[in-house]
Design a protein around this nucleic acid. Sequence first.
DNA 1: GATACTTTGATAAATAAATAACAATATCAT
DNA 2: ATGATATTGTTATTTATTTATCAAAGTATC
Lengths: 217, 217
Amino acid sequence: MAKQGQISSSVIKRLPRYYRFLGELIKRGTERISSRELSELMKLTASQIRQDLNCFGGFGQQGFGYHVRELHSEIGRILGVDRHFKTIVIGAGNLGRAITMHINFETRGCRLIGIFDRDPSITGDKVGELEVRHTDELERFCREQKPVIAVLCIPKAETQEIADRLVSYGLRSFWNFSHYDLSIDHDDIIVENVHLGDSLLTLTYGTNACLGENSEK
Amino acid sequence: MAKQGQISSSVIKRLPRYYRFLGELIKRGTERISSRELSELMKLTASQIRQDLNCFGGFGQQGFGYHVRELHSEIGRILGVDRHFKTIVIGAGNLGRAITMHINFETRGCRLIGIFDRDPSITGDKVGELEVRHTDELERFCREQKPVIAVLCIPKAETQEIADRLVSYGLRSFWNFSHYDLSIDHDDIIVENVHLGDSLLTLTYGTNACLGENSEK
DNA sequence: GATACTTTGATAAATAAATAACAATATCAT
DNA sequence: ATGATATTGTTATTTATTTATCAAAGTATC
């Protein structure tokens, strides 16, 4: 069924988008879709869709297309949306609180079980369902609860140190929002660097290139 | 001086990272660096660095390397960090407020001049230096102030409609945080979709693939 | 200033990714 | 059932990206 030798990261980064579009199609009541129709919707080529999906096995049917509901759940399974990876947030500042409140972790295979901050004055504050704990509690908490994923919303100067500590406490995956390129030597540690600042700079570049350099005003 | 025929987006997406690393080097007092040294620091090949930089002109010096300060300012100029693109935030919920407070727009060529929300009960609230305005004021505000960039922190269902409105008010660039693939037919409109949810799903996939499918617990 | 190094910029080669092509196989209308 | 049509999965081709190579040109040392 699966033929996952080694999937290229280009393909993997497209999977969540397929999953999202298929979810929308289910909401609309669409039951089947061909790679051509989906390609028009998603603005990419039918060829690419077929090739991407085929990395994981033949979900389609010749002369018919794909069953939307079935394909959606297959991709969901591949992504791991049905998992419940225990997840903690480090840093309860503006960004940490916003991510905690704004992202639906449950539908993405993650279960939020704690949020931490080193500032004692906010210990005990509520962030949604969670209560902010002090970072001094991190080690004991991790030994007991064994979280797997950490969301890092802390200043760049502290990121490497905290990440190394968390690795020693058994965490394996990092969703890193600090303006710092986290990299960890262990090869079974996963890091997803977000870099919002870089994203904005890309937009600035595009805006600058598009509006021209003279239209300052 | 510049030889910017058409720079590939792969190269452009690496520019902010070069800029960031060079900024760190300046802080450390490093005055010169070779592509080899920089490649070790950034974990990519020296060849790629030289080729990337050469898209924009020869900033280096044979037998010497690159002047850190000079290269930093050249890349900054290319990115447009010295611009002051007027920028507004749409949506003053958790995420909108966090982005407004957390991102340094000024150092990235953007000047925040307004934040809007459709909920009248938060009109007038302070977000940093800014006061939340009601979306009813959007049109008048845009006609008067002529902002160029909009940061969209609104539910996906409203995103396309608001974006189209903003285009008609003269905005040209969108930094889109809603879980929706914004695309606009105009070809001189720039969109940078962030998709935090997709980013988390990619991490879930990696975690799932790495820990194996059986270690549920 | 001659010699041994170093390092760029440019070109060539290798690798990766996206697209096109098409046989095989299904559907659909009659 | 039959023939016309549709659509996949797979392989071939094209395009894009990354990496390697190397002459040319600078630096550093004596």
